[in-house]
């Protein structure tokens, strides 16, 4: 009951913001805000693999691409028809588009989750860096396939995707990935993931099916990467394989590590920072990326455990700090 009320509240707030923000902010800020939201979904989801489970995936862009192209193809060939039918039957525009978008996002996310399952399977045999390389390979293979398949636009890119994603949907995705991560962290399943990160051999000897949990981490993580991809597709209205190179995966890893491995709030913070920073540096023109990379190096040297280490920012944490201060 309490949970339903919370959900209603969140939906309400997002709905209002969705209406207010585009009027309060200029389109450029709005775009940065949307990209921040998508980055947060990517970073928090990758944190499940790299942070919680201590595995190392460098293929997140691949899962994102699967979700992006999967959902876009669905919308182009099926969803758009639904919206036309619903609207001609008198349904309100937002509802018709929302429904079509929701289904498209689910299609993309589930496809990405299936890819995550397949990529996670070799973790039975491969350890550490070798598993990482397989994820890298997967990401590159996906990109090359997209570049070669004419039906998805190949190297020309895929234009004309309906731009249904708005602040409401991106916000909802952020809430979903954060809630799932937190609930996972505080459950026996999350503890199993942490155990794998801390000592895989001990975890296995004490009854944790490490392969199953690694695969689980990959499935959940890639589901949300696919969701982020779907949102990106329906916000940008255009997809190109070059958006999903391994540099994109690297960017997301940088967010997770910079935020502090395992810290959900850290991932959020770093995702926003690393999305806004290049935008804020836009006036520096050619120097922009040089400054960006220098800052990355300096941050890693000065704060090697990430901005937050593995702590979380939360009301709970602040409370505990205060009581510790009093004692």
């Amino acid at each position: 009951m309490k949970q339903l009320a919370g959900l209603a509240l969140i939906l309400g707030v997002l709905g209002i913001l969705n209406f207010v923000l585009p009027q309060a902010l200029n389109p450029y800020f709005m775009r940065v805000l949307m990209l921040c939201g998508i980055s947060v979904v990517l970073a928090v989801s990758l944190n499940l693999i790299n942070g919680f489970t201590g595995q190392f995936s460098i293929g997140h862009a691949g899962f994102m691409a699967v979700g992006a192209y999967g959902s876009a193809m669905f919308s182009l060939h099926v969803g758009a028809g639904w919206v036309r039918t619903l609207e001609s039957a008198g349904a309100p525009e937002a509802a018709a588009q929302g429904l079509a978008l929701l289904v498209a996002l689910m299609v993309g996310s589930v496809l990405a989750a299936i890819a995550g399952y397949l990529v996670g399977l070799p973790s039975l045999r491969l350890r550490g860096d070798y598993l990482a390389i397989v994820t890298l390979g997967f990401g590159e293979i996906i990109r090359v396939i997209i570049t070669n398949v004419d039906a998805v636009g190949a190297a020309r890119g895929l234009p004309g995707i309906p731009g249904w994603a708005n602040f409401f949907w991106v916000g909802l995705a952020v809430v979903a990935v954060v809630v799932v991560s937190r609930r996972l962290a505080n459950s026996t399943h999350g503890r199993a993931l942490f155990a794998i990160r801390d000592d895989e051999i001990a975890a296995e000897a004490l009854g944790v099916d490490t392969t199953r949990y690694k695969v689980l981490a990959f499935v959940i993580s890639s589901f949300f990467a696919g969701l982020a991809g779907g949102l990106f597709a329906h916000y940008n209205a255009y997809l190109h394989p070059n958006s999903f190179t391994f540099l994109k995966s690297i960017e997301v890893i940088a967010m997770v590590v910079l935020g502090g491995l395992g810290s959900i709030s850290g991932s959020i913070l770093a995702a926003i920072l690393l999305t806004v920073l290049p935008e804020a540096l836009r006036s520096a023109q050619e120097l922009r990326m040089v400054i960006y990379s220098l800052m990355l190096i300096v941050l890693m040297i000065t704060r090697p455990g990430g901005l937050l280490g593995n702590r979380e920012i939360s009301l709970d944490f602040l409370r505990r700090r205060r009581s510790a201060g009093r004692a």
Partner: peptide, 25 residues
């Protein structure tokens, strides 16, 4: 970063890579 975690070192390496590429540009 040699005494930090391997991931911190890896991100540093990524930073160096981006620096060389963009410095090159």
């Amino acid at each position: 970063v040699r005494r930090s975690s391997r991931l911190a070192a890896l991100i540093t390496a990524i930073g160096v890579s981006l620096l060389l590429e963009n410095g090159g540009i």
